[in-house]
């Protein structure tokens, strides 16, 4: 497995985590819990953006693995 595809897998997990946190933020009844989940969700968004950026660069550096 190339580095790019590994990082892509991590990106996918991150998106899953983002969705899970979002769901918990919506279904939790306690306000502090809601807020914690929401903040965590926003933080994962930043990480996702960073990783996406990195993937773009990796594909640029290793064009043979583009889109795999």
């Amino acid at each position: 497995m190339t580095v790019a595809s590994q990082v892509k897998q991590t990106l996918a997990s991150l998106k899953g985590i983002h969705a899970g946190l979002q769901q918990l933020a919506l279904t939790s009844q306690d306000e502090t819990a809601q807020r914690t989940f929401h903040e965590a969700m926003l933080a994962t968004e930043e990480i996702i953006a960073d990783i996406k950026d990195r993937i773009g660069r990796l594909e640029f550096e290793e064009p043979q693995y583009h889109g795999k």
Binding site: T10, S13, L14, G16, I17, G20, L21, L24
Partner: peptide, 9 residues
């Protein structure tokens, strides 16, 4: 599972 996924990432 969510916690495990976070730790893995």
């Amino acid at each position: 599972l969510l916690l495990a996924a976070m730790k893995k990432v």
